[in-house]
Simulated scan of single mutants.
Amino acid sequence: MKRTTAIRPELREWILNTTRAGHSIDEVLRLLKETGYDPRESRSIVATVLKIPLSALQPTAKLSGKRPRHPEAPRANAGDREIHVRVSTDAPVVRVLDPLLDDDECDALIELARPRLARALTVDTAGKQQVDHRRTSEGMFFRLGETPLIERIEARLENLLGLPASHGEGLQVLHYGPGQEYEPHFDWFDPAQPGFEAVTAHGGQRVASVVMYLNTPDAGGGTGFPAVGLTVTALKGSAVYFAYETGDELSLHAGLPVLRGEKWIATKWLRERPFLRND
């Protein structure tokens, strides 16, 4: 007998209790299928109850492009330096890297970026820049290889991750003042959105992110991964690397509010193919 799409209170409670008990979403979907639910209906129900994007539960093909090499503890080679891997998790793939940048490199990036700051934008469903109320910072982008410093950092990441520098978007520097934050979000682009083809036309899907901390805020300002209860402290010169595939709900992350002082970060997003733009 075909099921309706209405979510009964007892079903909602069962899904919540089952996931709280440590069972994976795949296991919940398997159990629903065994009791007669259509897989498509099950995904819709689970996405609604757990308040996650439906696209995160859609079956997706593996990306065909080149994938980054995840740095492994305790140390990783970045070409011109050896980097300590302070934290390493595999679900989601997260690595805390220290030090990725020297103090003088951090200071130089801030001074280069400062006169070019504007309200930080996100990418809309048509692949264009937009103001997003969830992101309250100021920011700017460098072009690939724009300065010798940018070129050096890109080469360092290429050596560290085994992914050509051409796969990276331009380095973005962001500045957060007291109370400013970036609410929980995914860095991968949602295939269910109408602008997916436009935003992935240059370089394909995003596959990894590197957030570099250019200063140490007086309080707050870390990077949180709420799906797994992990917070990475913002410390000058260190960075957090995380990788993901399309629909990876564990990669949900947030730029936590700055409680005192200010926060400066530099972010590099990596694509599955060379990222080429004319603008």
Rank of each mutant, 00 (worst) to 15 (best):
M212F: 01
K263L: 08
Y244D: 13
R143Q: 11
R143D: 10
A219T: 07
Q172G: 03
E169F: 05
V228L: 04
A254P: 10
M212G: 08
G145Q: 15
I153H: 10
Q180A: 03
L270T: 04
E158Q: 15
T200C: 10
A243R: 10
G204I: 03
E158Y: 12
V173E: 08
G170L: 04
Q193V: 05
A239W: 03
L250A: 09
A219W: 00
F225D: 02
A219I: 00
G220S: 13
S166P: 00
G204H: 07
R143T: 06
R260P: 01
H167R: 10
E169C: 06
G255P: 05
A254Q: 08
A243V: 00
G170Q: 10
W188E: 07
S209D: 15
D248N: 13
A208I: 03
G179F: 09
E272D: 09
P178V: 13
R206V: 02
H253Y: 12
V210Y: 07
G145A: 14
F242P: 05
R156Y: 00
P164K: 02
E262K: 08
H175Q: 08
N215Y: 03
S251G: 03
V232D: 01
L174E: 13
F275G: 00
G145R: 14
F189C: 02
F196V: 09
A155E: 14
S238F: 00
E183Q: 13
A227V: 04
L230A: 09
P274F: 00
A165H: 13
D218C: 03
Q172F: 06
H175L: 11
G255F: 01
G224E: 10
T200V: 07
K268G: 01
V211H: 04
M212C: 11
L149C: 13
P194T: 08
T233E: 15
T216H: 02
E169M: 02
W269P: 00
T246A: 14
V232F: 02
G255V: 05
E197M: 09
V199T: 15
E272V: 00
S238A: 11
I265R: 06
E154V: 01
D190C: 01
V207F: 00
R156T: 15
F242Q: 05
Y182Q: 11
L250M: 07
K268L: 13
L214D: 09
V173W: 02
L171E: 04
S238D: 02
V207N: 07
H202I: 01
H253S: 05
H253R: 11
